[in-house]
């Protein structure tokens, strides 16, 4: 019952509104990217791609070797050294939205020769990429700096109007 709900929710919410076409990605980067993977507990994030392009400059910083620039990681350069533009540029093209689903695990388990077995899922890739850079550059790193919590999210975190009444038991015995 619950699963029947969760799976479509995950699939439905893991949608990148812009930048889906590899052709488009290669030519015209989207100005705005709507990230609504966590739409149950958090409002979608409108990611200002354009200003990040201006700020960072180097597409490889986020897109690794797929945008025609060399990767920053010498490890990657051992294979991805052609400098060719990748066919797949969008995050979700490589970072699976459902990295731990039975299907995805089956695919990766069966493909024993696959090199990138330990690839982050989409959500992990976003957060690790964004917060990694934000920490270094002084950008926002708090959860609520980027995400607005929905009512369901407040209920989940027992925050907002769901904050528990303070008790003197909090410090333990």
């Amino acid at each position: 019952m619950k699963i029947k709900i969760i799976i479509p929710v995950i699939i439905a919410t893991f949608v990148f509104v812009a930048g889906l076409s590899p052709l488009m990605a290669a030519t015209t980067p989207p100005a705005q990217v709507r990230i609504d993977q966590l739409s149950k507990d958090f409002e979608p994030v409108e990611f200002d791609h354009a200003s990040h392009v201006d700020m960072v400059g180097d597409c490889g910083e986020c897109h690794h070797h797929t945008t025609g620039t060399a990767s920053n990681d010498p490890d990657c350069m051992r294979c991805h050294n052609s400098g060719a533009t990748g066919e797949r540029v969008a995050c979700r093209d490589c970072h699976a939205p459902d990295p731990f689903s039975a299907d995805h695990l089956k695919t990766t388990s069966e493909d024993r020769k696959r090199y990138h077995r330990d690839l982050l899922g989409l959500k992990g890739a976003y957060h690790r990429s964004c917060t990694g850079c934000h920490e270094a550059s002084g950008g926002p790193t708090g959860c609520l700096d980027c995400h607005l919590r929905t009512e369901a999210g407040d209920a989940l975190f027992r925050a907002g109007k769901y904050t528990p009444a303070p008790t003197d038991k909090a410090a333990g015995h």
Binding site: T108, L120, G121, A125, H127
Partner: peptide
């Protein structure tokens, strides 16, 4: 039912990797 535990699924940083223990 073939789903990862709730903590693994929610983790924004993918601190936890769910899979076959051997792998």
């Amino acid at each position: 039912n073939g789903l990862p535990p709730a903590c693994v699924e929610i983790c924004p940083q993918q601190v936890m990797t769910f899979g076959h223990r051997k792998e």
